[in-house]
Computed example of a mutant assay.
Amino acid sequence: MIDTDTASDDAVALMLASAADVTIEAVTIVAGNVPVELGSRNALSALEFWGVDVPVYVGETRPLARPLQTAQHVHGPDGMGDSQLPAPRRVPRDPDAVDVLVDIPTRDPGAVTLVTLGPFTNLARALERDPACLGKYRAIYCMAGTLGRGNITQQAEYNLWCDPEAAALVLDSGIPLTFIGCDAARDFTGLSSDRLDRWHSLASPRADFAIAVTRGAVRWYSDRGLRGSADLPDPLAMAVALDPAIVTRSETVHASVALDDSLRGKLVIHPDSAPVRRSVTMVTEVDADAFWSRVDSMVAGHDEPSASGGATR
């Protein structure tokens, strides 16, 4: 199951999941990178491109306590690199995303993995409806946080910064979480114009789609001299969820999320002796070759072989 604010790198993450030997139970949409209506459209377009019939559900339209501040300055007005994707044929389904996040693990406790690629607003609302619901997932992998430099402010990663109140509520629940942060993405997932050129040489529909939705972000990074490449935090989080063996280093930290304006969204690390400790597993290093092998194979059209009877959800 995937909760996302579908913009360019979210779409690549959806492509990775669609190409893998897994069943995607549902895709739930939260406001973040783009407004929720646009995120829903983008998710439906990406899934239709793959020909997979996965239900999409619309979730929260704004953070719990703050106005929505999108990242369209990076991902383009459409969130997909201004790629002008055709309108999807399908529409989101009922009920709302929060009900789905509550209901799916309740029906089959311990069987479904949740991957979150956006702010935690939908998750926080789910906890308000059923405080036990998130604990029924087999595991929860989140593109969230940083132990180093942020990607929206010096100290904060965007998903925590966009809705810090929701992130604080989820962390305070004590539910086991694995964070794949923007610092890990920065170190291991730089998408350069050279790689886009190699994808272009494949002359395949998948490569064309991946290029269309990511080239705007690559250009944005390059124009600002930021290593000349765009990070892929959401595909990295998805790759870790699909194959945790690509993680080469992680650490357990006791963390909270800062809510005051000066440190908004910062993942605050506390000593082990702190009276209230919320443990989060932070992925700090991955096998970059294994990550790029998965991404490049997917773009080239080499899916994982299907196993009879389905697979991880």
Rank of each mutant, 00 (worst) to 15 (best):
D289F: 08
A168T: 12
S262P: 00
G145Y: 12
R224S: 04
D163M: 07
G39Q: 11
I140P: 07
A111G: 02
D289P: 03
T252H: 14
I104A: 05
G145V: 02
L64F: 03
A237M: 05
L226T: 06
N33T: 00
D9N: 12
V100P: 03
G190I: 08
S256L: 06
R278S: 07
Q155I: 09
D183G: 13
A166D: 03
H270A: 05
L267D: 02
A307Y: 00
N42K: 06
D10F: 00
P109C: 08
T248Y: 11
Q154N: 04
Q72G: 03
R138V: 00
D208N: 11
H254P: 00
A11H: 01
A274L: 00
V213M: 11
F120P: 01
D296N: 15
V56M: 01
A203E: 11
D223V: 07
V36G: 06
D289K: 13
R264C: 10
M298Q: 05
G118E: 02
D99G: 03
L191D: 03
M282H: 13
N33R: 04
L38A: 02
D9M: 13
D78C: 02
D243E: 09
C142G: 05
D234C: 14
G150C: 11
L16E: 09
T70W: 00
L16R: 10
D3P: 03
I2M: 08
P305K: 10
L101C: 09
P205F: 12
S204Q: 07
C142L: 14
G110A: 11
G148P: 06
L114N: 02
V54D: 01
V98H: 06
N42A: 06
R195Q: 09
T113C: 05
R249Y: 09
P176Y: 09
L101E: 09
D296V: 04
L114H: 03
G39K: 10
P244N: 06
C142D: 01
W220A: 12
S193A: 15
D172K: 15
V30L: 04
D163S: 10
D289E: 15
G216D: 07
I211Q: 04
I246P: 02
I104W: 03
A311N: 09
P86R: 12
L171M: 12
R66C: 00
I29W: 00
D78S: 04
A126P: 05
P95S: 12
L16I: 04
E285S: 13
D94E: 13
D231E: 13
R186G: 05
V91T: 13
V12C: 05
R215H: 13
D208T: 14
W161I: 06
A168I: 02
S83R: 08
Q69I: 14
A97W: 08
T178M: 08
Q154P: 02
F188G: 00
R66L: 14
K266M: 14
A139E: 15
S229L: 03
G174M: 08
A241E: 01
L64Y: 04
A210D: 03
A245Y: 00
R90A: 10
A26I: 11
G79K: 01
R107E: 15
L123T: 12
S8T: 00
M143G: 07
L47H: 07
A241R: 14
T106N: 12
L263W: 03
L191H: 10
Q84I: 00
G145R: 14
S279W: 02
M282Y: 13
S40F: 05
L263K: 10
R313M: 04
P77G: 06
W199T: 05
L263F: 06
R89G: 12
A17I: 05
A144S: 13
E60M: 15
